[in-house]
Amino acid sequence: MRLRDLVVHAGLVATSLLTLFPALWVVSMAFRPSQSFDTSLLPIPEVISLDNFRDLFSRPHFFRQLGNSLLVAGLTTAIGVMFSCTAAYAFSRFRFPGRRAGLLALLVTQMFPGTLMLIPLYALIESLGLLNRSAGLVLVYSTTAIPFCVWNLKGYFDTLPRELEESAMMDGAGPFVVFWRIVLPLSRPAIAVTALFSFLTAWNEFILAATFLSEEQAYTLPVTVQSFVGAFSTEWGHFAAGALVVSLPVMAVFFALQRHLVGGLTAGGVKG
């Protein structure tokens, strides 16, 4: 038994190192005082300096932009999870005309390449009066995230045994109560995955954000990070520092969410 544990840990450590290794170059570039791309054989900076981070934090509106990013990603997560929970539940539990078409439609929305979507999306957001506002981004991001969220949650709901809901119904609980009190708590793992996905959809996006927002204090953080890329050269040190700063909240969010990735269904939960 102990040997098996050792093997598992050895394997996991190896995988973790392999996973982290390419990212270490980003760390190395962030902590080097240089702005050139690190092409050295190993990601070990010769001189360590915090200049890149200092430059980054002293950029105008930096913390405001961090706040914007958190707001946009947070709202996207909230809206994406809320609407997809209800929709996924309907798709999983109710049989209604248009159900298959609806599910397929969700999938279909992901199929058209996004390269040409910029102009019509801009026109739409403009006509809704949401240019330059976080709300416009939240709207676009949550619609981008919803198809996966619905499909993922629907897949999970499908695995939940209906007996629980049926017995609750027999105890006199309304459909909404069943959904809220029984289905949602049982689906915590899938909701956590969905939330992380929604958060990341909104968090790293910069093209739409750079197009829809026209005030530096309204920018989200990835826009600022991307502005270190120039026509002929890129300030890689600043970019890497920004990339690290951008990734940390993701890890924090995941760390917070991952405790929900523990058994939604208990052994005694299923009758039978």
Partner: peptide
């Protein structure tokens, strides 16, 4: 482990 293994998804 979980947090480490999610790094590729988190970094731009």
């Amino acid at each position: 482990y979980r947090v480490i293994l999610i790094v590729p998804w988190a970094v731009p």
